[in-house]
Design a protein around this nucleic acid. Structure first.
Lengths: 247, 247
DNA sequence: CGTCTAATTGAAGCATCTCAACATGCGTGG
DNA sequence: CCACGCATGTTGAGATGCTTCAATTAGACG
């Protein structure tokens, strides 16, 4: 299994590692991914990568940083619908859905690689295994949406927050993003509120509760899990919906 | 455009009509769909089509009736995450996601056609256009999840109910399900509550408000839209997220 | 050191929930 | 055809989770 991957650009291997989670790829498949044309672009925090209404001709891979998927309501309020970690392709759907029905924004500094739709289409037609892997990525996105719906419809603020921290931890682990025993948490309380369908004030109070209960330590853009068991139980977290690779 | 479609079974043409919404199909594509093996099965109201944890080897097309997608929480409460109308394939995702992370249940009497995974995979490998159409279906599902998230996170009960009725109307129109100026509404108030993340009692009261406002008439399994404009405005409904075929 | 954003606190209000009772309609068996 | 049973719908009353508004504090940064 030792591949001479050094010839791959690091951004190609980010994507490759992700896609290999979905099933075995042939040497041809790997070569095809490694030779995908990628346009690199950096974004500052709060900058939009893609806007609602756009008709993208490329899809992006997040290489570094955290991105959110969001919609703005008529009165200006916002709902964040997903948090996206390195390795993910948040607008892969634009390959088959002409027009964006929501926007993508950087929550931290973000490094992204853009791949032309045409190249991806060619890839998919040429390799059922890669078609499967990419399609699967969009399906896992859907599974996460469903889990968030359950949270917003039926869970208390406390449980939702706990659940989100569990999910983030798992995603960061998968993306191999960690600083010692801490994870980056590039979200203000206001952004957490938008992601959970709550008000800032309430997020603040519930966060304090979680701290008091010794479950997490949240400060200055960092998240530290103190009691995973407590968190997972409070949030009724089970990772099945993330459809993780067996590893 | 007049095709000799009479040779198709009616259930095949249900699926075909749906897939043609995503883009032009060749005569070969149509033939391939029409010759898909389908196992017909009927379900009574409240019967499950697929259960969380299952590892399906077939996907179903809903031919008649309404189905819901749901999860059960630890304490027995339920969250309904989607309502599915004829022509849709609610477990198409099982083609790429081994294990069901939620269940599907019939809300009314339901007629469904089951297609083996293998046949669908062959179809996709053989025709990029059909691959596109099917993938697209799963992406639209995702778009609807996102819209529901916005509702549960940021909209009042009144708006959510209005929005749901708008969505249902559009989906029924697309599936050509209508009785005069009424639509079937095979949902109890308790099921509406589970779909909107509310309590039964509150749904009951808000429903009365919608009636008093002359927006809808809801009774005995029937929905009648009295004031579409009022409904759409109350629910901030814009159908873009449904990614309807142009026409 | 002033400025700006993010975090925190208090207090009051309201949307929604829970509990509990009662009404209505409907299918079924006698 | 009636009587019963059960699911569904409706109502009232009280509790609460969460929101809004408004003010204050704490950090980060040039």
């Amino acid at each position: 299994m030792i591949q001479p991957q050094l010839r791959h650009e690091p951004h190609h291997s980010r994507l490759l590692a992700r896609l290999e989670g979905a099933g075995r790829l042939s040497e041809n498949d790997r070569r095809a991914v490694a030779s995908l044309p990628m346009r690199l672009q950096d974004f500052a925090a709060n900058e939009d990568l893609v806007l609602q209404g756009d008709r993208p001709t490329e899809c992006c891979v997040i290489l570094d940083g955290v991105v959110c998927r969001y919609k703005i309501l008529g009165d200006g309020r916002r709902q964040i619908m997903a948090l996206i970690t390195p390795g993910e392709m948040p607008d892969l759907q634009s390959l088959h859905l002409e027009r964006m029905d929501h926007s993508l924004a950087a929550l931290s500094r973000v490094k992204a690689a853009f791949i032309p739709h045409q190249s991806l289409s060619d890839l998919i037609v040429g390799s059922p295994a890669l078609g499967h892997a990419l399609w699967r990525e969009t399906l896992v996105d859907g599974a996460v949406f469903r889990e968030w719906m359950v949270g917003m419809g039926r869970r208390t603020a406390y449980a939702r927050l706990a659940h989100l921290f569990c999910e983030l931890t798992v995603k960061f682990e998968r993306a191999q993003v960690r600083r010692g025993d801490r994870y980056p948490l590039p979200l203000t309380q206001s952004e957490l509120a938008d992601a959970l369908g709550l008000s800032v004030v309430h997020v603040n109070r519930v966060l304090q509760q979680l701290r008091r209960d010794g479950a997490v330590q949240v400060r200055a853009g960092e998240l530290r899990i103190l009691d995973w068991g407590k968190l997972a139980e409070a949030g009724e977290f089970t990772p099945d919906y993330l459809h993780l690779p067996p590893r």
